[in-house]
Amino acid sequence: MTETLARLEGVSRTYQKGKERVEVLHQLDLTIPKGDFIAIMGPSGSGKTTLLNLLGGLDRPTAGSVRVGDAELSKMSNSQLSSWRSTNVGFIFQFYNLLPVLTAQKNVELPLLLTRFGGSERARRAKIALDIVGLGDRARHYPRELSGGQEQRVAIARAIVSDPPLLLCDEPTGDLDRETADEILKLLQILNREHDKTIVMVTHDAQAADYAQRTLHCDKGTLKQREVA
């Protein structure tokens, strides 16, 4: 029996927009086994990113339960969530979100600042992460000196450097050309297959979704599953 990494039960998320209440997610249930690679597709405003934010402890549900590993995220305080995120989840964004004032190496080291590792250990681990994504020779480059694909690789290295079990990717190839996008998606596949990372990826790109083990469609706040052939 496959071990469950994350479980969402009866999750709803409602936002107040002016006088109107908008329900983005409605009574959503989702179970994510360890080692899964899920693509979530759907139209804009369907709740994909909201779902990702709930899984990553960036947001709390209006109703329902979000459990990742042993942690019940919906009941945790802000500081508990911060601490939990630093070791349990890695984020990969569409626009990389690297800090422009830091080199690739220092960007990757950022999550390790929250650990007890000293400077040399942080540097060693960041170097390993950069080697995994194939950018060991770009450690001293600033983001402005890297291509979009390289920036995204650095962002992936930053996401995996503290070895979290879960990676959440929000349109990770949305800003890249097809060829570079495929390289990034293959890298994610390797992380999933060889490094046992559970990956949840939001995408509009059907070709990107093909790299996942399964695809879920999000529409009007609910999920429908489509098995990949």
């Binding site: 500081s79 911060s82 601490s83 939990w84 995120r85 630093s86 984020f91 964004f93 950022l110 929250l114």
Partner: peptide, 10 residues
């Protein structure tokens, strides 16, 4: 992004 990575509010 810093907060996303786990930096606390403080």
């Amino acid at each position: 992004v810093l907060k996303t990575l786990g930096f606390s509010d403080g």
